[in-house]
Design a protein around this nucleic acid. Structure first.
Lengths: 157, 157
DNA sequence: CTTAGTGCAAAACCTTTGCAACTCT
DNA sequence: AGAGTTGCAAAGGTTTTGCACTAAG
């Protein structure tokens, strides 16, 4: 078990250091938005989600700032910009480079997103590189279906 | 080698039969839009792409009709609605149920989309079903990177 | 005939941009 | 002090909707 404090110490400080290093300013808005992701670790927040969260305590923060901050954090590799097919971008903390990728199981009924770790795909990447000459940078796997709960409650699937 | 005529006979007639069966009308607009996908088999068309294609010979067809038809065809399982992260939906013919899935290699430089067939993922699906109790209906794999051409022409990757 | 489908224009929705005011460093 | 950042409002791009009109069955 980890304590939030520890995470904050190691992870957020790292983020802030990265901003400082690249000569971006450490504005309160940016800190607040990063905090929002820590408070919602497991979720995949859209820009509007973030805006609603930070608005509760900081109604002065504008939506455009949220968008600009998310773009910046994605560019720095801190957040990962993804798309679950609802035609809006969602963001989550980018897994460390040396970590295994995690993927997403998306329930077609309740829209819950379950994370799933697996490294079966590493061998697929090697295959692609060899067979097609494609230099793989990243991959995303989305699996659609019905989660345990919904599967049990639905008759018609 | 196949002839286009044969495909049309077997595939389009099947689509039109499905529409008739579900009591949807076989309007000229719908036929024209289906034809546009046959003329662009290998591509992943957005609604606007389709609109531009059909407008050449049929400028009277409205954009809203294109959207409505694409929605309908996706709902019937004839087209597959996908999203390559450019925040617009793209469509392609839905692979037959018993076919292997194909996946997409997306070049981060020239945005070309290369299709890739593989069934490594079948075993992953079984794993998910067992480990998490998730009933898998479909999956999508997107691989981002640089295609052979761009890899050779770029210094800085 | 009757109801689904169409075309147009307007609205809705998410995201980006221009600009004056502001604030981190 | 000065460059980067913000908030607001307006604009941009994609998709959806309302409505009168048309056409397939």
């Amino acid at each position: 078990m980890w304590k939030l404090g520890d995470l904050w110490m190691s992870y957020v400080k790292e983020i802030l250091a990265l901003l400082r290093e690249k000569e971006y300013k450490l504005t309160p808005q940016r800190k607040i938005i990063i905090q929002a992701f820590f408070d919602n670790m497991e979720k995949h927040l859209s820009a509007e989600d973030v805006f609603n969260i930070v608005s509760q305590d900081h109604p002065e923060i504008g939506l455009a700032t949220v968008y600009r901050t998310l773009d910046l954090l994605a560019e720095l590799g801190i957040l990962k910009k993804m798309n679950f097919g609802d035609n809006k971008f969602r963001y989550e903390f980018c897994p460390e480079k040396d970590n295994h990728h995690h993927h997403h199981l998306i329930c077609l009924n309740c829209n819950k997103v379950i994370e799933f770790e697996d490294d079966l795909l590493e061998s697929l990447e090697a295959l692609i590189a060899k067979r097609i000459g494609f230099h793989v940078v990243d991959h995303q796997l989305k699996v659609f279906g019905f989660c345990k709960n919904c599967k049990e409650n639905l008759q018609d699937i």
